[in-house]
Design a protein around this nucleic acid. Structure first.
Length: 708
RNA sequence: GCCGAGGUGGCGAAACGGCAGACGCAGUGGACUCAAAAUCCACCGAGCGCAAGCUCAUGCGGGUUCAAGUCCCGCCCUCGGCACCA
């Protein structure tokens, strides 16, 4: 044995030894308990992994090793989220092709993870951009289509001018594209494919109770889904027989206080009811609202604007005609795109009414008998007043009474509204799984590609730049586009949009159970054994993207009888973000990136790994600071020295005294407990404490027991 | 604006309502060395004291309790999320 602790000698030797002994292959003995450990699979970037990324991989790796050593069959795989905007944008920026960059970058990630001593079963490596994988992503599209959960619709949708593609709502962050955080998104009208995630809104909400996730993440999902109970009611439009304004409200008890109505500028009724006198002003306002980017809309959030349409609606409760306005504070995408305005009880309506001199009736009085503040709306529940048959009822009872009334008079019904919209999955981009649909030119219309004809292979294209016209670059490949209808054999064209990259990551956790299976996306028996994931680790930034989508797909598969569980990730933990030493994001352009390679060169992989654990609490954000690595190097050196003394003493069997035994047991208990609760920093502290004690003892006094 | 997380030594941080600061980093003194590095030993929140010890300390102000970093009420600050959702 060497004199000194020298990681440069030890680590390559043992890493080669692990590989030779196939030590980290997934256990196959199904009589053992299983543990499926998964980190969110990364998109392979040319920048390689930083020590910040490693904070996502090393602590879970410790859990995996711990579980393996305590008798579990561990599935701990790794793969590449290779399709989608991040990979394609990076390749475009470098003037390269993702078909070359992705495998190259993935190989580098793999090299770094191995260098860092992470114990993955690399025989299960997957890459979502390979036909053997995306074949099944397409298969899932067909499954959703078959189940009525994929549909095509025209709509005004978010468009990123940088990415030159439509984005889903979840992928718009602060009014900007999630990949280009400085580029405001704009609206574009296109016919697009959607997944009906809203059909799962209630189950996505309820089943959050089944999982052990960080509360803030659950809350973000609840808010994103945004369930509201209320009523949908229709008021007739005066002088337009048969026309009515349908609206959603959560406060039907305030109907007697409705003094005007507001439509979203995009509302289809606007063109039909606008009076000649108001037409010019209305059209000008609609055009201006359309031009506005999301950012501009947000920046003017305080000041309400709108225009009178010249039309009136009839309020059957007050039996008065009330003016219909348009305003961009009413959103076409929520409810019905129209509201009843109760300015006495809604602050937004109050501000609007104040600005445009509209009537502000008061129909809810505070419970304590005081008068509402005349300077703002009274938005709390209270006692209904000035409201005919609702007078003197408490808000909750008034709501019930109105619901009965509107159902009796057939002008409305109780209903539930959600903020979440359907998931728009068409991308006008090259680097994704082609949507497996065909448009028959003659008779059959939209036809799904038969399952046995999958994959619809992504054609090779040298020039894969997004066009910006709203059509995917695939539209420029006639051999791809022109095909025959699978139904009638007549001439047909393929769908040229590709699937959102988040489709790939909505089922990858299943693929790892049987990554090479080629008769279905997964082998049922393997999935029944391994799934759901027991510990899932990744960043909180995916709270309402990947995590929501993957939950939805899981429920679809459950409904289709493909799997027997409802939630894919039983336990979720978010590692804290590691910022650079300067408190900023680690990035090449800022020159503040620290790579695992350089750290390992200086201190060794084990010292780096321990420091990743010891830096601070796993789930807390932190700034990178490598001063403390000295401590973990020292710790490893002391362990080395102690073991060497023990070996030099001839490995005595030893006879530990009661105190030594007590301490050893306590340390084992603490370390076990803390690893299981992801308290890696304190688990290591307990080990250091134990070393401080044991290092003072005579080797003969402790024996193998305390050393181990 | 709304929702959430957090605020403890010079620094990273610990702490079932029970001796605040475990474990480390940095620092100070010592041993070893011609010397340095490494290693080992001791000290290491602030103030007073030769010392035993005393006093003050967990963002601020109140409260509950034999006992509060921890529980309750009201503020301040930092970070994260949502952002006119009717």
């Amino acid at each position: 044995m060497d004199e000194r602790y020298d990681p440069k000698k030890i680590e390559p030797f043992w890493q080669a030894e692990w590989e030779r002994a196939k030590l980290y292959l997934t256990g196959q003995d199904r009589s053992r308990p299983k543990f499926y450990l998964l980190e969110m699979f990364p998109y392979p970037s040319g920048n390689g992994l930083s020590v910040g990324h490693l904070h996502n991989y090393v602590p879970p790796d410790v859990v995996g090793r711990f579980k393996r050593m305590t008798g579990f069959n561990v599935l701990h795989p790794m793969g590449w989220d290779a399709f989608g905007l991040p990979a394609e944008n990076e390749a475009l920026l470098k003037g390269l092709h993702p078909k070359q960059t992705v495998p190259q970058y993935a190989a580098n990630f793999k090299r770094q993870l191995k260098l860092s001593g992470c114990a993955y079963d690399w025989t299960r490596e997957i890459n979502s951009s390979e036909p053997g994988y995306y074949r099944w992503t397409q298969w899932f599209f067909l499954l959703l289509h078959k189940r009525g959960l994929a549909y095509r619709a025209v709509g005004s949708q978010w468009w990123c001018e940088e990415c030159r593609t439509i984005l889903a709502n979840e992928q718009v962050v602060n009014g900007c594209c999630w990949r280009h955080t400085e580029t405001p998104v704009t609206k574009k009208d296109l016919e697009q494919w959607y997944f009906r995630i809203t059909a799962y809104a209630d189950r996505l909400l309820e089943d959050l109770d089944l999982v052990d996730w960080p509360e803030p993440i659950k809350l973000m999902q609840r808010n994103w889904i945004g369930r509201s109970e209320g009523a949908e009611i229709a008021f007739p439009v005066a002088d337009h027989p048969g026309k009515e304004v349908r609206f959603f409200t959560t406060r039907p008890d305030t109907v007697f206080g409705v003094s005007f109505m507001v439509l979203a500028p995009e509302h289809p009724l606007v063109a039909e009811i606008t009076s000649d006198a108001q037409r010019a002003a209305v059209e000008e306002y609609v055009a201006q609202a359309r031009r506005q980017s999301e950012i501009e809309r947000l920046s003017t959030v305080k000041e309400k604007t709108g225009v009178f349409t010249g039309a009136y609606a009839y309020n059957p409760f007050t039996r008065k005609n009330i003016p219909i306005w348009i305003a961009d504070y009413v959103l076409m995408g929520y409810g019905t795109g129209a509201i009843m305005a109760a300015p006495g009880e809604d602050q937004r309506d109050f501000e609007f009414a104040t600005k445009y001199g509209l009537e502000i009736p008061r129909v809810t009085a505070p419970l304590d008998g005081s008068r509402p503040d005349p300077g703002c709306a009274f938005t709390e529940h209270g006692i209904t007043v000035n409201s005919g048959f609702l007078d003197r009822l408490k808000t909750a009872d008034a709501i019930k009474a109105v619901l009965r009334w509107i159902e009796e008079h057939r002008i409305g019904r109780p209903t539930v509204s959600y903020r979440m919209r359907d998931w728009l999955i068409s991308r006008q981009r090259y680097w994704g799984a082609p949507i497996p649909m065909v448009y028959c030119k003659r008779t059959c219309g939209i036809v799904p590609v038969p399952e046995d004809q999958l994959p619809v292979v992504l054609p090779d294209m040298r020039d894969y730049q997004p066009s910006g016209t709203g059509r995917s670059p695939l539209a420029n490949v006639p051999e791809f586009v022109n095909t025959t209808c699978p139904k009638c054999g007549g001439p047909a064209e393929r769908e040229t949009d590709t699937l959102d990259g988040f489709a790939c990551s909505s089922w990858y956790f299943l693929r790892f159970a049987s990554p090479h299976y080629d008769r279905a996306p997964f082998e049922r028996a393997a999935v029944d054994y391994w799934l759901p994931v027991d510990l899932y680790v990744g960043g909180a930034e995916h709270a309402v993207m990947h995590l929501l989508y993957a939950r939805m797909w899981t429920k679809v598969m459950f409904d289709a009888g493909l799997i027997n569980f409802k939630e894919p990730f039983l336990v979720l933990r978010n590692q804290g973000m590691v910022w650079a030493a300067d408190g900023q994001k680690m990035s090449k352009s800022r020159g503040n990136v620290v790579t695992p390679d350089s750290m390992i060169e200086k201190y060794g992989a084990d010292a780096l790994r321990l420091w990743e654990l010891f830096m601070g609490p796993f789930e807390e954000p932190t700034n990178w600071n490598e001063d403390g690595v000295t401590g973990t190097v020292r710790y490893l050196t002391r362990v080395w020295t102690m073991v060497r003394r023990y070996v030099e003493a001839g490995c005595p069997a030893g006879s530990p005294n009661a105190e030594t035994l007590r301490r050893a047991h306590k340390a084992i208990r603490t370390v076990t407990d803390h690893i299981e609760r992801q308290r890696f920093n304190t688990a290591l502290a307990a080990l250091m404490d134990q070393l401080n004690y044991a290092a003072r003892l005579d080797p003969a006094a402790i024996g193998r027991f305390a050393i181990e």
